[in-house]
Design a protein around this nucleic acid. Structure first.
Length: 277
DNA sequence: CGGACAACCTGGCGGC
DNA sequence: TGCCGCCAGGTTGTCC
């Protein structure tokens, strides 16, 4: 479910119920979900520690405990929520990892496709160390972004998905940012003009900020672990709007495959043969 | 190193 | 209704 705005929404919603809770036990039924350390050590180490802070780095959820950090990556279908241990939710059918907390609460990790991973680390740098700058932070500067693009000849869209260039953009917001900037997803990264790079830098931030404001793209699964849909897809300009009129010019939105990912764009607003005038 | 692509998994949906 | 193929918001490993 996650791109940066969705993960940010989860993090914000986890703080209140999670901070101050102490881990009393751990359960899992899919070994691969636990990346490291091995499950026995994981359980032994995390038990007795209390959640002190919850934050986000790119698409990683960082839950800081007394001595370690519980790191969670939701990948495609992960959902992470705190609930009373006696309560049931639709997403529970895919829970493969769970922490029992004091006060009769549980932290549940639901993940139907089983791509998601949990880590327990004393040094998160071993997990997030290679990530590029946070797109909404000061570290994401136009100059550095331009330098990255200048030495890549691949299509711009896959470059936006490269987490070492900018950390947190996923398939939805890559399409959204490119549409807002009027840049075709297949344009070689090193062919973008300075003006286009500045524009793209801005639309990346705007698209992500809007996503956060709408509490994530499509699903408010934290507040509604029943899986009910949110309404944020109504705000998309390109993603998922194949065949529908471009909100800017009315031309039907086109869909192609770029770097193995479905890619939506307006052929009118995002021409492949850009004019330098 | 850059780039292309398979792999990891399951569920939901459109089409026949 | 039932079955089938296709698609999915992410990352990593492998090969050239």
């Amino acid at each position: 479910m996650p791109e940066l705005p969705e993960v940010e929404t989860v993090v914000r919603n986890l703080r209140e119920p999670l901070i101050g809770r102490c881990v009393e036990g751990m359960w899992y039924d899919w070994g691969k979900t636990i990346h490291s350390p091995a499950p026995e050590q994981f359980a032994a180490r995390i038990t007795g520690q209390t959640f002190r802070a919850v934050e986000r780095r790119a698409k990683y959820i960082l839950c800081h405990l007394d001595h370690d950090t519980l790191v969670v990556h939701l990948k495609m279908t992960g959902r992470l929520y705190v609930t009373n241990a006696t309560a049931t939710h639709d997403a529970d059918r895919w829970v493969h990892f769970r922490l029992d907390l004091d006060g009769g609460q549980q932290l549940r990790f639901s993940d139907s496709r089983k791509f998601g991973r949990v880590y327990l680390a004393s040094d998160i740098n071993t997990i997030t160390g290679k990530l590029g700058p946070e797109p909404l932070g000061d570290a994401f500067a136009v100059e550095g972004f331009a330098a990255q693009l200048a030495r890549r000849k691949a299509a711009i869209k896959p470059i936006l998905l490269d987490q070492t260039v900018v950390a947190g953009i996923g398939n939805i917001y890559a399409d959204e940012a490119l549409h807002r900037a009027g840049i075709h997803p297949l344009r070689p990264a090193n062919s973008l003009t300075p003006d286009e790079i500045t524009r793209l830098h801005g639309t990346i931030r705007a698209a992500l900020s809007d996503g956060i404001q709408h509490e994530g793209a499509s699903i408010n699964w934290y507040r509604k672990p029943d899986g009910s849909k949110g309404n944020s897809q109504d705000h998309f300009y390109a993603y998922g709007r194949t065949g529908q009129p471009c909100r800017t010019c009315g031309t039907p939105v086109n869909k192609i495959v770029v770097g193995q990912r479905g890619t939506h764009f307006c052929p009118q607003c995002q021409p492949i043969n850009h004019e330098t005038t």
